[in-house]
Amino acid sequence: MNLSPDQIIFWQLGFIKLNATIVSTWAVILVLVLSSMLITRKLSTNLHRSRWQNILEVVVINISKQIEDVGLKHPHHYLAFLGSLFLFIAISALGTVFPGFEPATGSLSTTAALALCVFIAVPLYGIREQGLASYLASYTKPTFIMLPFNIISEISRTLALAVRLFGNMMSGAMIIAILVSITPFLFPIVMTLLGLLTGIVQAYIFFILATVYIAAATSTIKPTAKGS
């Protein structure tokens, strides 16, 4: 039994390898991009629009609204990064309904990669909004003594992001696998439903935490509450 889809390797050439994580990521990317391309190929600016366009508009507008609700004044600037995080994780979780699909988010490598992206994106957005000096100065607040703690907090929350998503996704898949071996009927279906729910919830949590970190980095007043 594999704990991570990383261990299912289709092709390897030394350091380079093609495992189930990468393949499922590509699949999700393909689904997202192709459907987007198909739907946005003929967008209507009239009052009448297709159902698919309507769905996409609902998704995009709601993501944008969530970003704005958290406190980012210009949600369109962050939409590409944060929206993609949410959509990728959500589609990966939804993909678990297909038998044989290994969600990429069930791999610690993927969650670590996503957390790394957030870890890098937060200071970048902070510097872009506040300027380098102002951003760096925010680490010494409220006092200079807080600098090491702030740095530790920055790293630890990134780790927490990665491990939380991995644990939830992996556990979901793991529970289903175990249950299938114990009670092959009915019960795995209920757990799959639960897995879909937790997957969407995790996607939302990951997305909202990333948004909060970015908002904290870009706003001049740092919120005291830290994501855990």
Binding site: L3, I22, T25, T110
Partner: peptide, 10 residues
């Protein structure tokens, strides 16, 4: 659990 090539690829 972490494969660094996969992390980079992801």
């Amino acid at each position: 659990l972490i494969d660094w090539f996969t992390v980079l690829a992801q």
